[in-house]
C-alpha cells in the first residue's frame, strides 16, 4: 500500500490520471457552461448579469479551499518536516491564485452594473484581496531564495498566518456590514438560491475543481521530475 506513495510509482499514476482528469474536465466544463449560459433562467432583478456568478462564486470557493488545504499541509511540513507535503503545497498554489484573481475580476465586472461601482473597500472584498496577496507571497517565497529549506519554511509560515484570513473572508459578510451580500448557499441555514440556478453553480464548481486538480497534477509531476533529475531516488 505504502508503495503507491513512492514518487516513482506516483509519476506513473499521475501520467495516467492526468489524461483522465483532462477529459473529465472538458466534459464537465461543457455541461456547466451550457447549463449556465443557455438552460438556466435569468434573475428577477439582475437579469443576465447573474451568469457572472457561475464563474465568480466557484472561483472564490476553490481559491479559499485550496488555501485552506495549503495551510493545513503547512502545519504538517513544519511539525513533521514532511518534504512531500511541501511539493504538494507548492504545486497547489498557482491554480488557487488564478481562481482568486478570477473571483476578484469577475466580482468587479458584476459590481459595476449591480452596485454601481467597480471596487468597494468593504470587509469581504478587502479580505479577498488580502488572500490574493498571501497567495502571491507564498508563490514568491519559493522564488526569492535558492535555498530550498529556507523557501519551505518561509512559505509554510506564510500559509499558516494566512489561514487566519480564511474565516475572515468567509464570515466577513455576517460579522460586519458589507456591500457584498451574505452567502446564498448555506449548509446549516436555508439556501436562498433557486434550484435552477444552483445546478449550474454546482457543475461549474466541479469543473473548476477538476481544472485545479489538473494543474496540480502537472505541477506536481514537474516537481517530482526535478527531484529525479537531481539524482535522488527518495525525498
Amino acid at each position: 500500500m505504502l508503495n503507491y506513495f513512492n514518487p516513482n510509482n506516483i509519476l506513473v499514476i499521475i501520467n495516467r490520471l492526468r489524461k483522465f482528469v483532462f477529459a473529465l474536465f472538458i466534459i464537465v466544463l461543457l455541461i456547466g457552461l451550457f447549463e449556465a449560459l443557455v438552460l438556466s433562467p435569468e434573475d428577477y432583478k439582475q437579469s443576465d448579469s447573474v451568469r457572472i456568478m457561475y464563474v465568480h462564486v466557484p472561483s472564490a470557493w476553490i481559491s479559499l479551499g485550496i488555501f485552506s488545504l495549503i495551510s493545513i499541509l503547512s502545519f504538517g511540513i513544519l511539525i513533521f518536516k514532511n518534504k512531500n507535503f511541501s511539493l504538494i503545497t507548492k504545486s497547489l498554489a498557482p491554480s488557487g491564485f488564478l481562481f482568486n484573481v478570477i473571483a476578484l475580476v469577475t466580482g468587479s465586472i458584476w459590481g459595476r452594473p449591480t452596485w454601481g461601482t467597480w471596487w468597494a473597500w468593504d470587509a469581504r472584498i478587502t479580505s479577498m484581496l488580502l488572500l490574493a496577496i498571501f497567495y502571491l507571497m507564498f508563490i514568491l517565497s519559493w522564488r526569492i531564495t535558492d535555498d530550498t529549506d529556507k523557501a519551505i519554511k518561509a512559505s509554510s509560515v506564510i500559509a499558516i498566518i494566512g489561514l487566519i484570513n480564511v474565516p475572515i473572508v468567509k464570515f466577513s459578510v455576517d460579522w460586519w456590514s458589507t456591500l457584498h451580500q451574505p452567502a446564498s448557499v448555506n449548509l446549516l441555514k436555508d439556501t436562498t438560491i433557486h434550484s435552477s440556478m444552483l445546478v449550474p453553480l454546482v457543475i461549474m464548481t466541479a469543473a473548476f475543481a477538476l481544472f485545479s486538480l489538473l494543474i496540480f497534477l502537472m505541477k506536481y509531476n514537474t516537481e517530482l521530475i526535478k527531484i529525479k533529475n537531481k539524482g535522488l531516488d527518495r525525498l
Binding site: P41, E42, D43, Q46, G116, I193, H194, M197
Partner: peptide, 14 residues
C-alpha cells in the same frame, strides 16, 4: 454616490 446593495436571493422572474 449611491450604491445599490444586492441581497442573497437569486430566482427566476416567474
Amino acid at each position: 454616490k449611491i450604491l445599490a446593495k444586492h441581497d442573497e436571493n437569486y430566482m427566476p422572474p416567474e
